[in-house]
């Protein structure tokens, strides 16, 4: 019974992707046809090979997403560490401030960010886009690392100190290995957020910086289903690829199950 439901749910999720795949390979697929007709590779040719923006936009996206992944993870680690290990004035306010972007509608948030970026002269700059993306991804990073740091017994760090660790060796030899799964997780989430973000990239990039999602949008928007489907397939594959890569890496690192939270 449980299995049937699972299979059913997966089918519901996979079915639309299947249609996208069919749309990218056949030129004629209309109602009431059940199976599409006229197999063709023209869509793949025009959307990938002959598309002048394909390589540059994909490269832009990957660079921006990687930068966002690294920055959000670093900021997440530092903020979470401060929130868990130290007492300071306005701790709750800081925590709330960092979760706020999760509740405010993206449209309202980025209109505000837009005017700030103009003043900071970061419009049409990659750094502006990364900062905007970080607004959405940092809260995830912080919350991931808060739970990781809470899982590390403070006394374990004290053990390290009594064995002669300086704060730097303590972090690199004890803390870092223990939060490694969190780093993979936070990096992949931030990467995917940046990679899939359309609105803020478009707004802050001002049309000068074309990423994969901004490049793809006009195709879908204009009803160019064939080419849109090709780009969609590539988009999905990259996302799924990143997801499974991090899953694999964190599994490999985490040889022992659940050693945290002992």
């Amino acid at each position: 019974m449980k299995k049937t439901i699972l299979v059913f749910i997966s089918l519901i999720m996979i079915f639309p992707m299947l249609i996208v795949l069919l749309l990218s390979m056949f030129s004629y697929y209309r109602f009431p046809l059940i199976l599409p007709q006229h197999f063709t590779n023209t869509f793949w040719k025009t959307a990938v090979v002959e598309n002048p923006l394909f390589v540059s936009s994909l490269a832009n996206s990957i660079v921006l997403a990687t930068c966002n992944g690294i920055c959000s993870t670093v900021v997440g680690i530092m903020t979470a560490r401060a929130l868990v290990r130290h007492e300071f004035m306005g701790k709750r306010v800081v925590r709330m401030f960092f979760t706020l972007p999760l509740f405010i509608p993206a449209m309202a948030l980025f209109l505000g960010v837009h005017s700030v970026m103009i003043r900071l002269q970061l419009m049409n700059h990659c750094s502006g886009i990364i900062l905007a993306h970080m607004l959405i991804s940092v809260p995830y990073g912080i919350n991931i690392f808060i739970s990781f740091f809470q899982g590390i017994n403070r006394d374990m760090e004290d053990v390290g100190k009594t064995l002669g660790c300086t704060p730097i060796t303590l972090f690199s030899r004890i803390v870092l290995p223990l939060i490694m799964p969190g780093i993979y997780l936070s990096f992949s989430i931030s990467f995917l957020i940046s990679f899939t973000e359309y609105f803020s990239t478009f707004l802050i990039g001002g049309g000068n910086i074309i990423t994969f999602s901004t490049m793809m949008y006009p195709y879908v928007h204009n009803g160019d289903l064939g080419n849109g489907a090709v780009l969609g397939i590539i988009f999905i594959s990259i996302n799924v690829g990143i997801f499974y890569l991090t899953e694999y890496l964190s599994r490999k690192k985490l040889k022992i199950d659940s050693y945290l939270f002992e």
Partner: peptide
């Protein structure tokens, strides 16, 4: 602390979970 060279055994063992027994002893 790190310069005092005083051994400290805590109430719970607090072994580093990502290291083997030998690596734990070797750490210091």
């Amino acid at each position: 602390v790190e310069k005092r060279n005083i051994g400290y055994v805590f109430q719970s063992p607090l072994l580093f979970p990502h290291m083997t027994v030998e690596e734990n002893i070797r750490f210091g």
